[in-house]
Nucleic acid binder design. Structure first.
Lengths: 242, 242
DNA sequence: CGTGGATTTGAGAGAAATCAAATCATGTGG
DNA sequence: CCACATGATTTGATTTCTCTCAAATCCACG
């Protein structure tokens, strides 16, 4: 039942970490509480103290934060195989929201069990640690994106990042990938208004960098977008040696 | 000789982690190569593969990244007791620069020794992991700052954050703290132009939120700045229980 | 003193936000 | 199968914020 979950995790972890058979076996034995959530449902709320982490097996999730004036900033996008609130293992109070974007299959794993696993298999603990560090590396690149790139390359950069990450877990190829976001959500990722995001998106379409395709799928001219945004994939640390 | 370094680390770690006597003793015994660097000198360069981490014992450092068009975004500010490149333990290639901002006393600690320490004292490993997670929590708040706050509250937020962090290690009190940044560097933290930063800073002064004081020291009206920026300190996770 | 970096000022251009309305989908119930 | 409601996208007009460029001033330091 939870095979779909552990498989997603293993796919993700083995892509950017060196794991041995023991580690993988230990993951398979990790107890998980399977749970399904629909779009906009909150997985873990700002200010709460979760006792579990949440493995995303299927679907998309986002982490976001509200300003005191009620505006939303999306902090990160999460794809299958990730544990978006792994930080709650050591940061006990949530400092942001974790929300399902699409219908999600989730596996809740108790902090206790993860801690135990980490003590028994330090190699796996290092892999989890590394995952949280890659998470942070992506935050850094997003800081550059928000701070120093104009709207057009900013959006281009986001598209390329998402493509490369999905590609790494075998969910994107040939410049095509799933993009189940409304324009409002994209705007919230990029610190832009919806109206402006819409115009920028149109400009990418006009330039042929983004082609119309079936709903919530994006077909993009990767090379063009990479050039436009100055994309350098180092920060994704997809290679265990990087 | 390296006492100043380990002391700084212990002050910082014990502020937001629960360490026992063993852990502290182990830190004191950690071999460090003492090194001093001047302003603008690079500690660890983008694209390189460091074999050591760098403990900041005295001074200020920043992490930053250049866009393809040559603009700089500062990603984080670092104060004594922090290990700004701790991520290099598991992310082998630097995806940004680490640079001294003021004259710095640094302690270089080999990855090998840290790994060994982590295996022997899992409690300490967790503390280090937690430090990198707090680092990431600050990135998240900066994303909100860059994406959703106008220039005035954005600068206000930065001032409050820096104050609160310095206060936590006993280096700020009474609304006064060390601020050894040029306006250009502040602008690079906030994704603003120098000219605009200057005008915004003047506005804070006009409002009485920032008072003129001796060079590179800032005297601020904390309550005013917190209200202006909607500051909520949760994300700093200064309390080990948070 | 003079020099170079940092800060400040002014003027003008450009990017993005806001406001308001129209259009387009999509899904529902009659 | 159509009328309608709802949410998403698009368009237009205008305002606001921030950047750029260029020059002036300030200041620390040799």
């Amino acid at each position: 039942m939870t095979k779909i979950l552990s498989d997603a995790l293993i796919t993700k972890l083995t892509r950017s970490n060196k794991l041995d058979a023991d580690d993988i076996e230990a993951i398979r034995r990790l107890p998980m509480r399977l749970h399904e959530l629909g779009p906009k449902e909150t997985i873990a709320a700002d200010g709460t103290r979760p006792a579990e982490c949440c493995l995303l097996g299927e679907g998309f999730a986002v982490r976001s934060k509200l300003t005191s004036s009620g505006e939303r900033q999306i902090l990160s996008l999460h794809i299958p195989g990730e544990i978006p609130d792994l930080q709650s293992l050591h940061l006990h109070v949530m400092d942001h929201d974790l929300v399902a974007l699409t219908p999600c299959k989730l596996g809740f794993i108790s902090h206790h069990n993860i801690r135990q696993l980490n003590r028994r298999q330090p190699n796996l603990a290092d892999a989890f640690w590394r995952e949280t560090l890659i998470d942070a590396a992506i935050f850094r690149e997003w800081l550059v994106n928000l701070g120093r790139r104009p709207a057009l390359p900013r959006l281009a950069h986001l598209f390329v990042e998402l493509y490369r990450r999905l590609e790494a877990i075998g969910r994107a190829a040939g410049g095509e990938f799933e993009l189940p976001f409304t324009q409002e959500q994209l705007a919230d990722c990029l610190g832009l208004s919806t109206v402006h995001l819409n115009r920028v998106l149109q400009e990418l379409r006009r330039k042929g960098a983004v082609k119309p395709s079936r709903q919530f799928h994006q077909l993009v001219d990767l090379e063009f977008l990479e050039r436009l945004s100055g994309f350098d994939a180092t920060y994704l640390h997809l290679d265990p040696n990087v």
